[in-house]
Each structure stands twice: as structure tokens, then as C-alpha cells.
């Protein structure tokens, strides 16, 4: 029996999320007295795979072949299920991102395994197997028990600390040939922006709302973000108005994020917005309305006009960096 953690790669590389997943799986395996086995699908160099051992993977399995370059949900499910059965996995760990959301529920049906998604902590108990998760978009939490022999967990990004726990790098290449007939979806075109920090990956996010007053006022906000190595984001009205691109929208129906620091600039903090950002470790609120709900969620607040406050913040960050 073992804990199986599935890792996707981004152009052959892993990122912080991957190491969070391995750290988490390794701790769960430790609790169960089992091994943590990492599974990578796709072309990833051995030097990159070796990093997974640093974060506690007892063994790293990888499947490489040309057929799996495109992410087809049925094909990937079949391969992961085959590995899970081969190694006798009783816990599967995936990310709670779009690929995890595609694969984990299919695996749940395939393996008849109960699933809890978006977990942020280690299981509270093993028998019964109870895990803690956010519900009602962050307005409450639930302790959920999984009743089946095989359990599936998806881990919320930025919620579990990356911990090094170096193991000897044990690498196994598995030759699994996916069934070509299964592959029914076909990628025709990929459009990628490069160089932009992803909101979901960023440690710091600088976000603007209607209080920015016009799409022409964003320069100091972007400058602040650039200085801090942060991603830029916005509230729903801003993306609906077309002031900023839709992929910057954070909130219930947009991106759900959990950075270390979130700047809510000119954002009043409607329930739907808070649902997307309430897991941030620190929230800074800047708003003209002292009664705005964002101040209830924030640790630091400035009651004032965003457009007057922003240049001062930019100056202060420049000063901090010059020291």
C-alpha cells in the first residue's frame, strides 16, 4: 500500500505547487507508515524528477511517450488508474487546479474512491479518515470522512508548506501505452502569453477595483506589482467593464487564490470577491469608504483614495529596495 501523488509538468518543469503536493503526500504517507510514490506523465528530465525526491518522494515513476503530449482527460485517467492499481495505492493526491479537477473525479468513479477536494491540512484522523476543507466559498469549513478503502484528496494551492525531506532518488520508467481509441479530444491550437506571473502562482497579488476610477489609472498599480514581483488582478466589475482582462478577475466566479499578501485597492469587498481571496495570509485594504466590508477581512487598512495612496506606496517600496 502506498500514497500516489500525480504531478503535471509545465514544459517539462515542475513548480512550487508540485513540491507542495509531494510534501503533502509524503506527510500523509508518514502518518500511514507507507511510501509516497510520485507519478509524472510527460517528458521531464531526470534532473527535474530528482527534485521530487528532495521533497519526500520515496519513488518517482514517469511515463513518457509521444501520444500523451496533449492532455486528454480519459487517457490520463486510464494511465493514473493503471499505476494506482499496480502499486496498490490507497491514497491518491492531486492538485485542486483544472487538471486535478478533470482527473480526480474520474479516478473517483474508476477506483470507487471517495474524494475530498480543496484540502489544506493533513488528515485529522486516519480511522475514520477525516479531512478538513473549505465550504460555502470560505464562509465555513467542513470535516469530511471518506468511507472507501481508496481515498482521493485534491490539495488547494499555496495552502501547504513546502518541506524538504530528502530521500534517495529511486526512478522507474513505466511503459504504458495509452489506448489510442480513447483519445477523442484534439488540441488544434495553443495560445500562451509568456513572461506574465500567474495570479494563482504568485506570492503577492496587487488587485484593483472600481475605486481605480478608470482603466487609464492602472500605471501606478502595475508599477507597485512590478516592484514587488507580484501578479496583477482585479475585481469583477473591472473585468466586466473591460478595464482589465478577464483572466485577472479574482473572486467567487473568477480565480480563487491564496497568496501570502493580497492588496485590495479600491475594492469594497463584496461577499463574492472575498470568496476568492479570503485564504490569503495577509490582506491590505485601501478604500475611501471606512465601512467597506473589505476592512473586516484585512489585517492592514488605509482609508483613503487609491489614486493618492498608490504613488506613496510605490515610493516606499522603492526606498525599501534601495536599502
Amino acid at each position: 500500500m502506498s500514497v500516489l501523488v500525480f504531478l503535471e509538468n509545465w514544459d517539462g518543469k515542475f513548480k512550487k505547487l508540485s513540491f507542495e503536493l509531494v510534501s503533502y503526500a509524503s506527510k500523509v504517507a508518514e502518518m500511514l507508515g507507507q511510501q509516497a510514490i510520485a507519478l509524472s506523465i510527460g517528458n521531464v528530465d531526470a534532473s527535474e524528477l530528482e527534485k521530487l525526491a528532495t521533497y519526500g518522494a520515496d519513488k518517482v515513476i514517469n511515463i513518457e511517450n509521444d501520444m500523451i503530449k496533449a492532455f486528454d482527460e480519459q487517457t490520463y485517467t486510464s494511465m493514473i488508474a493503471e499505476v494506482a492499481q499496480k502499486i496498490g495505492a490507497n491514497v491518491l493526491v492531486l492538485a485542486n487546479n483544472n487538471s486535478g479537477k478533470a482527473l480526480a473525479p474520474r479516478l473517483s468513479v474508476r477506483l470507487k474512491a471517495g474524494i475530498v477536494s480543496g484540502v489544506s491540512k493533513l488528515p485529522l484522523s486516519l480511522s475514520p479518515f477525516v479531512v478538513y476543507k473549505k465550504v460555502y466559498s470560505g464562509k465555513a469549513f467542513a470535516n469530511v470522512s471518506i468511507k472507501t478503502e481508496i481515498k482521493i484528496l485534491t490539495l488547494a494551492q499555496n495552502s501547504f508548506e513546502v518541506v524538504e525531506s530528502p530521500k534517495t532518488f529511486v526512478h522507474e520508467k513505466l511503459d504504458i501505452q495509452p489506448d489510442g481509441n480513447l483519445m477523442k479530444t484534439r488540441v488544434k491550437e495553443v495560445q500562451k502569453q509568456s513572461g506574465k506571473i500567474l495570479i494563482t502562482d504568485a506570492d503577492i497579488v496587487v488587485s484593483g477595483g472600481r475605486g481605480m476610477k478608470s482603466p487609464d489609472n492602472w500605471a501606478p498599480l502595475v508599477e507597485l506589482a512590478d516592484l514587488l514581483g507580484a501578479a496583477t488582478a482585479c475585481s469583477r466589475p473591472v473585468s466586466d467593464e473591460g478595464w482589465r482582462s478577464h483572466d485577472e478577475h479574482t473572486g467567487q466566479t473568477g480565480k480563487i487564490i491564496a497568496p501570502n499578501l493580497y492588496f485590495a485597492i479600491g475594492i469594497s469587498g463584496a461577499t463574492q470577491h472575498l470568496a476568492g481571496v479570503s485564504s490569503s495570509k495577509f490582506i491590505v485594504a485601501i478604500n475611501t469608504d471606512k465601512d467597506a466590508p473589505i476592512f473586516e477581512a484585512a489585517q492592514y487598512g488605509i482609508v483613503g483614495d487609491a489614486l493618492k495612496v498608490l504613488p506613496k506606496l510605490v515610493e516606499a517600496v522603492k526606498e525599501m529596495k534601495s536599502k
Binding site: F282, Y300, G301, G304, K312, L313, A316, M320
Partner: peptide, 16 residues
């Protein structure tokens, strides 16, 4: 929430 005076916004950065 800990409030910082708008005229002294720079203080926020040192608190952070």
C-alpha cells in the same frame, strides 16, 4: 484591521 493614516501610506510598507 490595523489602520494606517493615508498621509503616511509608506508606513504600511515597513509594517509589511
Amino acid at each position: 484591521c490595523k489602520y494606517i493614516n493615508a498621509d503616511d501610506a509608506g508606513q504600511l510598507i515597513s509594517l509589511l
